[in-house]
Design a protein around this nucleic acid. Structure first.
Lengths: 183, 183
DNA sequence: GGGCGCATGTAATGAGTTACATGATTGA
DNA sequence: TCAATCATGTAACTCATTACATGCGCCC
């Protein structure tokens, strides 16, 4: 429902056509959502069917015709419902990347540290990118700051993790007994 | 690929049947992955076809027969490949919940704060649950700690956010101009 | 005797992605 | 003239989920 909320919220402020929406999302909100073009067009179509938004065809110069969408009253109701649900709820995140951590003793400490070094570089790059986003007026700024905060915490955590790993040249063991499988 | 890595990694330490795997994951790793039973059975089947794991039927008492899986040599190779890719990479997270933040000025400040209070309660509950997980030996502990760290940071961020929101009784505005849509 | 645990699956569904298709216009 | 931009979609596919199906044993 978050994607619907996003599209409704943007259309609520200003009527737009699909291409324009995608461009804005790509430019400003790319680190918050990764909605793809066919998905957006599909959702716009679905919400138009549902009566949440109204569609008007328009033409600018000799460009292809555009489907301009604007929020309806039903759409406003849906928007408020979705927004309230969004603000009130919290969905816990799953760190899929962490799965590998459960098996770090399967490789040599040296290789593990090298690999985590690569991870750290990727993370630092993401952080630099988030920091480089120019400030936006209004509450969008909160989203950017949240992302920066999160990435900083991740980097700090990863650095701390690396210091806690064994630095010695011990060999990798095939089946360490330190993972409790017993019931 | 992270789910495959997880299953391979567990089978690498100890051969198990599907039900046993799911039980372990539900009990110990439920906050790290949310793999469901049909998915696990499907993946086990697929990896058996691929030759990564070998299947043996076994029976305990008068219980239903079990498909016990163990890692093959090809599976070991696949495991190491997946593990290296996992440790070296970093996939940036998208906070779908943040989308609502872009539109917080659509509701009255009072209601916004009330809704965010509900969010905070859900978050605090998740944190309490993560903290209550009994310590696990070995590197699984890292995953738990990471989750706790992350939830703590989230809580701190949310608290700070609430203080930065307007506390006054201003009316909600229909179309605030503080979101730059211009190009 | 009724429900839960054990143990494995199938079928239907859904959400979202990639790849493809179209066709004019604008800029290098 | 060649690529990129504008603007909209369709079709096929992947991945994962929910709901359903089965059937015996164990415990209260």
């Amino acid at each position: 429902m978050d994607r619907e909320l996003l599209l409704l919220g943007l259309l609520r402020r200003q009527e737009m056509h699909g291409y324009q929406l995608m461009e804005f999302i790509d430019r400003v909100l790319n680190f918050c959502t990764d909605i793809k073009k066919p998905t957006a067009y599909f959702l716009l179509d679905k919400m138009a069917e549902a009566g949440w938004i109204a569609r008007t065809e328009s033409q600018a110069g000799h460009r292809p015709p555009r489907q301009v969408y604007r929020l309806t009253e039903q759409g406003e109701i849906a928007f408020q419902r979705l927004l309230r649900a969004n603000l009130a709820g919290y969905t816990a995140l799953r760190f899929a990347d962490d799965i590998g951590l459960a098996f770090i003793d399967s490789l040599s400490p040296a290789e593990t540290l090298a690999l985590l070094g690569q991870r750290r570089a990727a993370l630092a790059e993401a952080l630099a990118a988030a920091r480089a986003v120019p400030p936006h007026p209004g509450s969008i700024q909160f989203i950017i700051e949240h992302q920066v905060r999160h990435l900083e915490a991740e980097l700090q955590w990863l650095d701390e993790l690396q210091t806690r790993l064994p630095h010695s040249g011990k060999k990798a063991r095939r089946a360490p007994k330190d993972l409790a499988l017993a019931h």
